[in-house]
Nucleic acid binder design. Structure first.
Lengths: 123, 123
DNA sequence: CTGTATCCTGCGCGATACTG
DNA sequence: CAGTATCGCGCAGGATACAG
């Protein structure tokens, strides 16, 4: 099976990419998107839960990345309640769920790389 | 098996990351690294071969990304000949080869995403 | 053939403060 | 509780010219 560069380029959500590797890296690349998806893989989470589980991300960046992931169809955003404090829940879409195996592969590779050539640090 | 955040952070090549997903995305993230690795997955390639197969990358960026991939231990660079024109060959290291399954997962996901929600364009 | 040197631009991302 | 507004830095990466 040919797994790349079927056709001359690919279009997704109106944007063009030279190949599907490129496309994937654009959708889930960057410093945080994969990490966020990772934390959603076991079920929905609230905004503040994500913040606590990813302490080094800022509010603004988390908010921005969530918006982009939603726009690209990887996660959903649901609001409960009308008056503050409202409750907002993020969850994977089907497309997002189909990405979980890739996430697992990424995680396992990272773990093996660290085991072989790096170190796990406990402070 | 716990696949993330073993310890409080991880160290790789002297750099610290909050988790292994983060680490992986740093090593092969960015606009081109995964694409380059993809083109090396079936065996060594020369500089110009890579240029031709990835037309939209510039010489400078290709050169820079190759250097970073070499520094991170994902590829090797071998020079043949002393006087110009010399021949330079890039190849995956063992670490790089161990990344191929991840690459396949990324590619397949991208292909499915395009098949379902995008389009393959022939010009 | 395989790069480097320079210059430059966009934007990802952080810091901090504020809001419904 | 779940964000936005504003400001700005740093750096990846493009254009173009040059080099061993």
């Amino acid at each position: 099976m040919k797994t790349e560069c079927i056709g001359d380029y690919v279009k997704f959500n109106g944007k063009a990419y030279p190949c599907t590797v490129s496309l994937t890296m654009n959708l889930i690349g960057g410093k945080w998107k994969a990490v966020i998806l990772y934390h959603l893989k076991d079920g929905e989470k609230r905004y503040n839960e994500l913040r606590k589980e990813i302490p080094s991300i800022t509010e603004m960046t988390l908010s921005l990345q969530l918006k982009q992931l939603e726009k690209d169809g990887l996660i959903t955003r649901k609001v409960f309640g009308k008056k503050p404090p409202v409750k907002v829940v993020y969850d994977l879409t089907r497309l997002g769920e189909s990405f979980v195996p890739v996430l697992e592969a990424i995680t396992q590779w990272g773990n093996k790389a660290v085991t072989d050539n790096g170190e796990f640090v406990h402070s």
